[in-house]
Amino acid sequence: MSDDRQHEFFATCPRGLEGVLATELTGLGAQEVAPLAGGVKFAGTWMTCAKANRQSRVASRILWRLRQAPYQSEHDVYRTALALPWAQWFTEQETIKVSVSATKCPLNSLDFVTLRIKDAICDHFRERTGVRPSVDTANPDHRIYAFLDARTVTLYLDTSGEALFKRGLRQVQGEAPLRENLAAGILMLTGWQADDGQGSCQPLLDPMCGSGTFLMEAAQMALGIDAGRGREFGFERIKNFPHAAWQAWRDERDAMPVNIRALPIFGSDKFGDALKLAHYNLENAGLRDVVALKQCDVLEVNAPAENGIWVTNPPYGVRIGEQAALQAMYPQLGDVMKQRFAGWRCYFFTADPALAKGVRLSASKRTVLFNGALECRLFEYKVIAGSNRKPETPVKED
């Protein structure tokens, strides 16, 4: 397994961010980049894989494609897995976990498919060493993924280990935390400029910042801090991975100075407890001096610059009383944008379909995104000095 050999990979991501991830991976040197449902297929060397794991802000995992083969039964899947040279990649002393997903799969039980793949890996080692690897579903050394469509099974070896959105920086979080890679992808969709070419960035405000996920991602992007700096990856446990080349590149990246400085990144929240979480997370990440925080009701917030990006994930009321309070607040949010944020682009990420009607402003763009299984929208409002206020009559959703 030489360093310059091309391999096939699949990077998973939150649904709706496939195009953003494809652009990001292309910028990291990936070849044959192709967005697919739920992720991006690409080709590259092992170092391409390593750099994608460390530097991608949008990917959830980087999976190495091992084999794709037709199947008609569980035994066909077993034989495909048994034929792979597992002992070249890890030892029988290490633990494994097998995960299976499918679409239009004709087989009766994915649990049984999972068991047969596990059996194939264990049988491969038993035939060669007399010892089978153990299963660890909580913290395995190696994760094996299988995807079945109506006719083919594709087997992958995970190169990430812990999911890539687990940066290791956010120590505390609110009730409904936004995953870091989803927040980063949203920032990219807004077109926010992390580097203005003069040592700063475009002004950014999250007026309902909660534990500060948007703020932390923005600060790292503006300072050029790799998303995976300081954490470990699954590929470091693969036997034939070019570890020396990776370690030399990683050490060079780690040695690059980071100029911690105040940037026009602003966060506020009505609730002091939420703001304490943001303070703590930024402090833990060494970013406290980068971001300006303030306790403030969103309806009282003022624009911190003449223009910039407003991006926020407003609360979503589950109980009837909460929903009523939010729907009463939405027109006031529209007033705040019109009266104080002319020249700004405002983005709301929400699962609440009432928001678009409630603010009574014309959304210039609506992007469908998924927060896990929850379908959401990213609404864009380009606020101008004139009036783009909608009438109060009901407006149909797209």
Rank of each mutant, 00 (worst) to 15 (best):
F10H: 08
T26S: 15
A34M: 15
G38Q: 07
R54M: 08
I62S: 03
R65C: 11
P70H: 09
Y71Q: 01
R79D: 12
W89Y: 15
K97Q: 14
V98K: 02
S109H: 02
D111K: 05
R116C: 06
K118F: 06
D119S: 05
D123S: 00
E127S: 14
G130Q: 07
S134H: 11
D136H: 03
H142D: 00
R143S: 07
I144D: 02
L155A: 01
L157Y: 08
R167G: 06
G174V: 00
G174F: 09
A176V: 10
A184C: 08
I186A: 11
L187Q: 01
L187N: 01
M188E: 13
D195L: 07
Q202A: 09
L204E: 06
S211L: 06
D226P: 11
R229I: 10
R231L: 00
G234E: 06
I238K: 09
I238T: 03
F241N: 08
H243L: 12
W246I: 10
D251L: 15
E252R: 14
D254A: 13
A255K: 09
A262M: 09
S268R: 02
D273Q: 15
E283S: 13
Q295D: 12
N307T: 12
T312Y: 04
T312I: 01
Q323A: 12
Q332L: 15
M337F: 13
A356Q: 15
K357Q: 11
G358C: 03
S362R: 14
G372A: 08
E380I: 04
Y381M: 02
G386D: 13
P391T: 14
E392C: 12
K396I: 11
K396M: 13
E397Q: 15
